[in-house]
Computed example of a mutant assay.
Amino acid sequence: MTAEQLQLILQSAWGALPTLLAAAPITIGYALAAMLLGLPLALLVALARLSGVAPLRAVSSVYVSFMRGTPLLVQIFMLYYGLPAFGISVSPLVGGVLALTLNAAAYLSETIRAAILSVPRGQREAALSLGLTPRQTLRLIVLPQAARVALPSLGNTLIGLVKDTSLVSVITVVELLRSAQLVIARTFEPFGPYLAAALIYWLISSLLELVQRRLEGRLARRG
């Protein structure tokens, strides 16, 4: 690579930064929306897999297996291009968030289920013997401890979601990757914009990792 080529790449990356930085909040918004919507669903799926009701266990197990066993890109296509066949049309924004949410919920449910199982059984039995109902035991005793155990994995899932949002560009959502592609279509120089996009993804992931470590440290200091 010559000095002129390197200079062209750096100029292209620098010129793409304003457009890419404007799209970064959209990428973060997609990841946060999928995380916030996926957590309640993940909790329900995890509880269904732990329940004594066989049909609930079966349905939730199939859901987790399917969502984890198929590519996210295929799921995006199924929801965005497949649902209209049933008379249901969704916008790119809704289709992207829905696909990310359903996919994330499957992974999050396994994290939550493992965290719940990590709470010693004796604590649940002690809570029940003190007069707490099963629901109170779950809400006051089990879930707070499970949340602490699950926090590192939840943080990793959020970081993964930030990167997975790049896939919604295939349904014309103008997020970070799609913005880089639009810049390339104007400048015909691909490496610089892609490099700038990669650096922004890296920066977002690093900041989220820093927040995750601080939360873990705070929880550790509290006991």
Rank of each mutant, 00 (worst) to 15 (best):
Met1Asp: 00
Thr2Val: 01
Gln5Met: 10
Gln5Leu: 13
Gln11Ser: 08
Trp14Val: 07
Ala16Ser: 15
Leu17Ile: 13
Leu17Gln: 13
Leu21Ser: 11
Ala22Lys: 14
Ala23Lys: 13
Ala23Phe: 08
Pro25His: 13
Thr27Gln: 02
Gly29Arg: 02
Tyr30Val: 01
Tyr30Leu: 09
Met35Gly: 02
Met35Leu: 15
Leu36Met: 08
Leu36Thr: 05
Leu39Gly: 02
Pro40Trp: 03
Leu41Met: 14
Ala48Arg: 02
Arg49Met: 12
Leu50Met: 06
Leu50Cys: 01
Val53Ser: 10
Leu56Phe: 12
Val59Ala: 14
Val59Gly: 03
Ser60Gly: 09
Ser60Phe: 08
Tyr63Leu: 06
Tyr63Trp: 11
Phe66Val: 15
Met67Cys: 07
Arg68Asp: 04
Pro71Thr: 07
Leu73Lys: 06
Leu73Phe: 09
Phe77Gln: 07
Met78Phe: 01
Gly82Val: 00
Leu83Thr: 03
Ala85Leu: 09
Ser89His: 00
Pro92Arg: 02
Pro92Gly: 06
Gly95Met: 07
Gly96Asn: 04
Gly96Glu: 04
Gly96His: 05
Val97Ser: 00
Val97Gln: 01
Leu100Gln: 01
Thr101Glu: 08
Thr101Leu: 07
Ala104Arg: 05
Tyr107Ser: 00
Glu110Ala: 01
Thr111Cys: 04
Arg113Thr: 12
Ala114His: 05
Val119Gln: 02
Pro120Asp: 15
Pro120Trp: 09
Arg121Gln: 15
Gly122Asn: 15
Arg124Cys: 02
Arg124Glu: 01
Glu125Cys: 08
Ala126Ile: 06
Leu130Met: 14
Leu130Glu: 09
Gly131Leu: 08
Gly131Tyr: 09
Pro134Val: 07
Arg135Met: 00
Arg135Lys: 01
Arg139Ser: 06
Leu140Glu: 09
Ala146Arg: 04
Ala147Asn: 03
Ala147Cys: 10
Arg148Tyr: 05
Val149Gln: 07
Leu151Pro: 01
Leu151Thr: 07
Ser153Val: 10
Ser153Pro: 08
Gly155Ile: 12
Gly155Thr: 12
Thr157Met: 12
Leu158Asn: 05
Ile159Gln: 00
Leu161Trp: 00
Asp164Phe: 06
Ser166Pro: 11
Ser166Cys: 06
Leu167Phe: 08
Leu167Arg: 02
Leu167Met: 11
Val168Ile: 15
Ile171Arg: 08
Thr172Ile: 07
Val174Lys: 04
Leu176Trp: 11
Leu177Ile: 07
Phe188Glu: 01
Phe191Val: 14
Gly192Pro: 03
Pro193Ile: 00
Ala197Gly: 14
Ala198Gly: 15
Ala198Ile: 05
Ala198Tyr: 09
Leu199Ser: 05
Ile200Leu: 15
Tyr201Thr: 01
Leu203Gly: 12
Ile204Glu: 04
Ile204Asp: 07
Ser205Ile: 12
Ser205Pro: 03
Glu209Ala: 15
Glu209Thr: 13
Gln212Met: 13
Gln212Ser: 12
Arg213Asn: 14
Arg214Thr: 15
Arg214Glu: 13
Ala220His: 05
Arg221Glu: 03
Gly223Gln: 11
